Each structure stands twice: as C-alpha cells, then as structure tokens.
Simulated assay, not measured.
Amino acid sequence: MRQFHVLLLLLFSSSLLHAQPVRIGVSETILSLPLFVAQSEGLFAKRGVDVTLVKCVGGNRCMKNMLAGQTDLATATELPVVFNSFERADFAILTSFVSTSNDVKVLARKKANVSQAQELRNKKLGYIKGTASQYVLDLVLVYSGVDPSTVTPIAITPETALQALAKAEVDALCIWEPFASKIQKELVSEVNLVPAPRLYTETFNLIATKPVIKTRPRDLELILLALKDSTEFINQNPDKAKTLLAQRFDIPMAIVNSIFNDYRFKLSLNRSLPRTMEGQARWAMREGHVDSALTQPNYNSYVYPRLLKKADPGAVSLP
C-alpha cells in the first residue's frame, strides 16, 4: 500500500511539473514579432499549450537566462548560440522563425563626420558584445577596407546606446531594431544612418535546453505549431502586425512601414544554418573573441529538427 501511495505521489508531482507554463525568454526586438502575435491572438492557447513570455533585452541575455534556469526556451540569433557553444552543449535550436539582412544598422554622430563606412577608421565604435552587433560591425569594417585595429571598440548595452551617441562617448555604433529607429527618432538631425552592404542574413531562433526537449516534447511541438500559425497570420494580416509593432515599441507607423518588408517571417531549419555558425565560430576564434586553442564545435549537434519535422515538415531541409 505504501508503495502504491508513493507511486501516486510521483505521478501527481510529474503531472504538476508538466502543467507548468513553458517560459520563453523573448528579446525585445522586431524579430520577436511571431511570439508577440501568438500571444496577442491567443494562438498558444488555441494549440493547447500554456506559455509565459519573459522579456529580456537582446538574445545574449535571453540565452543567459535560459542557461541559468530562469526560462525554458530563449530567442536569439545564431551568435549567442555560437559563443555559448564553446562552453557547453546542453541546448539546441528548434526552429528559425524570421530572417533578415537589414535588422542591424550602423548609426553615426554627424559631428563625427562619418557619412560612409570607410570613414569609421580611427573612430570610437560602440557594439553589444556577443551579439550580431559585434559580428556585423566587424563585417562592415573589413568589407569597407577599414582595419579593425585602427578603431576603438567600446562595449555598450542596448539601453545605453542612445546616451553613448548623444554624449559623444562613441562616434558611431552598431545596433539592431527597434533601437536603431528609436535613436534616429530621438536624436533626429544629430545622427545619420551609415550605408552598409548587406553582408549577413541573420536568423532569429527558438532555442531550448536539452532537458526541456527531453521532458516536454509535446509542449514544444505545440509551440512550434502556434508559431507556424503566427507567421502565417503576419503574412496574411500585415497591417495588424504592423500596428502591434508600432504600439509595442512606440515607433511611428511611418518607420514601421519603412522597415517591415526587411523581415521574412517563416519557420525553417536550413542546411545553411550550421554552416553560418561554423563561419561565425571561425571569426570568433580568429579575432580573439574566444580562445583560439579551443576546438570548434560541430554545429549540426546544436540544431534539433525532429520537432519541426512533425509540426511543419516542409520547413526542414536538414537530415
């Protein structure tokens, strides 16, 4: 009888565990629009999964929170995945849900006399460490013929970017939307957008720890189905999606209209994703952002396509 009661207790405890909401760390960025839409339109509930969205500023922080156990999943570009991959292997990308080549932008103070990328030489440049901001800035410098050793890199945060430019703590900086547009809105004639080639197509990804993948596969599959519904909603109802963005980030609709088509909302896991991360890992090692003596990880093991194959088979081109 005692063994029977213990078994009941274990089953009850297990059911309580799985009844808990799935906590997703959601970066406060336009790239997270499918999560915002899924929440506002009740798409998670329609699929029968309880989700709590936990705000974080930047995918690197979302990843940090997830790996610390504060959330079950995270949203981030590939860069936080790459940087963390040199230290641990207990997480994987479940799906990409948006791609863009024009989310991260370079802004400069007009008084710094920077109107083109070649003029970034010998300037103080702000970047957000461990993110696409750092990667894109390096790409822009090298492509424009500017030796990175000739600039002064200054690590900033998204929250301090506006102040850094306004107070001339940096001459220019590299940052993603909606921070780029909000800085331009706030500083108006004091800053200008530096034209830069579109050298990098970033993806924004849903990432889970492997223990969560093991213990809650059905919940994760339902979340992927809800995100599929959400991306379809965005593509079929762009005006409603734009209104949500404008309201959430306090951006004028004119700005939303000007940047909205830079984003392609669609679930995917393509062969190019691990190859992109391999290139970023080589960059990180070559530039000394991680120890060059470390072994480069196999990024195929950081992608978990099984659940997406169930939720949206046509979105997967990985084995």
Rank of each mutant, 00 (worst) to 15 (best):
Q3S: 13
H5P: 04
L7E: 15
L8N: 07
L9R: 01
F12G: 09
F12L: 15
S13C: 14
S15A: 14
L17F: 12
Q20R: 12
V26G: 06
S32A: 15
L35A: 11
V37K: 06
L43R: 06
F44G: 06
G48E: 08
R61Y: 10
G69I: 12
G69R: 01
L73E: 01
L73S: 03
A76F: 03
R88M: 07
R88T: 12
T100M: 01
N102H: 08
D103A: 14
N113I: 08
Q116S: 14
Q118E: 13
E119C: 08
Y127S: 07
Q134Y: 00
Q134R: 03
L137M: 15
V142Q: 10
S144R: 05
S144Q: 05
T160G: 04
Q163S: 14
V170S: 11
D171I: 11
A172C: 13
W176Q: 07
F179A: 15
E186K: 13
N192R: 04
A196L: 00
A196E: 11
T203C: 04
A208V: 13
K210S: 11
E221Y: 03
L222R: 15
L224Q: 06
K228M: 03
K228H: 13
K228V: 09
S230E: 02
K240I: 08
K240G: 03
K242N: 03
L245M: 14
N261I: 14
F265Y: 15
N270I: 08
T276Q: 06
A284P: 04
E287K: 10
G288A: 14
Y302D: 06
L307H: 00
D312M: 04
P313N: 10
V316A: 06
